[in-house]
């Protein structure tokens, strides 16, 4: 009975929501800004890192590998502390370099730390996706007389995009979850506002409200991504029953460029 009473008290705790709901919403806005900015900047950084990682130039390749190992091998919280409190320690130098305005702001520090971190993960995702396109396809396309740009544009990228779609969606979800660390360096994101409300009310259910908001965001993105993936891979699935209906080509026959290799568009 006690438990039921507690349950009802939680579900109908509208007082807390009506008093502090707007605070949670403003926290959601900051969280959304941090996540979207970090993910976009991370994506832009990820491509050159990925190319460097796949390059034949040894220093370039090992530099990129080192970057990825450091950012994936240490906790994000540690990286955030290094950026935020580390910048404070070298303030005279940063002021001299004209960069202090940037590091002074907790928001920018978070964006920097999160972008550098997610860039390492996204670079590995891109590398995996590019690696999933077989060499033979590139060679075949080149043999057909396509320019390197058109090989990339029409053969490699459409397939790599499909392969990268799901892991990139997962990475977006991970960044949303990781963004809660921003609260530790004074940013009033969703987690920050939640802590603040808790400090005022000592009502633990505010943490559960926050959990539900995060859950709605991550679950919503997961569903959206499933749909996007289904839409983007329509052509692949439509061909599959046909493939099954036809007998496999005899050994030694010329390989036919399947519909998978050259998606429309």
């Amino acid at each position: 009975m006690d438990a039921l009473h507690g349950l009802l008290g939680f579900v109908f705790n509208t007082e807390l929501l009506s008093q502090y709901g707007w605070r949670l919403l403003s926290g959601v806005r900051i969280t959304a800004e941090v996540v979207l900015l970090s993910c976009s900047i991370g994506f832009v950084l990820a491509y050159p890192i990925c190319r460097a990682r796949m390059s034949r130039n040894l220093p370039l390749r090992s530099g990129a590998a080192g970057y990825i190992a450091v950012f994936r091998g240490t906790p994000l919280l540690c990286q955030l502390y290094l950026v935020y409190y580390g910048a404070g320690e070298v303030r005279p130098w940063l002021t001299g370099a004209g960069l202090w305005w940037f590091f002074r702001d907790a928001f920018y520090c978070c964006i920097l730390a999160f972008s550098l971190n997610t860039a390492a993960y996204q670079a590995e995702i891109l590398r995996g996706a590019l690696g999933s396109v077989s060499r033979g396809q590139r060679e075949a396309a080149a043999a057909l007389g396509l320019s390197p740009y058109r090989v990339a544009r029409h053969v490699v990228w459409p397939q790599a995009f499909l392969a990268a779609l799901r892991p990139l969606g997962n990475e977006l979800i991970l960044v949303i979850k990781a963004s809660a660390l921003a609260a530790i360096v004074t940013l009033l994101d969703l987690m920050g506002q939640t802590r603040l409300i808790f400090a005022r009310t000592f009502d633990f259910s505010v943490y559960l409200y926050a959990a539900l908001i995060y859950l709605a965001a991550t679950e919503g993105i997961r569903r959206l991504w499933n749909r996007m993936e289904r839409a983007a891979s329509k052509h692949v699935r439509q061909i599959e029953p046909l493939k099954a209906a036809h007998p496999a080509p005899p050994r030694g026959a010329l390989p036919i460029v399947s519909a998978e290799a050259v998606p429309p568009g």
Binding site: A69, R72, T74, Y81, L82, G88
Partner: peptide, 28 residues
């Protein structure tokens, strides 16, 4: 531990850097 050390000595780069290095060794 790194946090306590850096707050007591006001040398965050040294101690968070050391912590990051140890985490990296664990990861490798």
């Amino acid at each position: 531990a790194a946090s306590e050390a850096s707050k007591n000595t006001t040398r965050p780069i040294l101690f968070y850097g050391a912590a990051a290095a140890i985490y990296l060794v664990f990861s490798i």
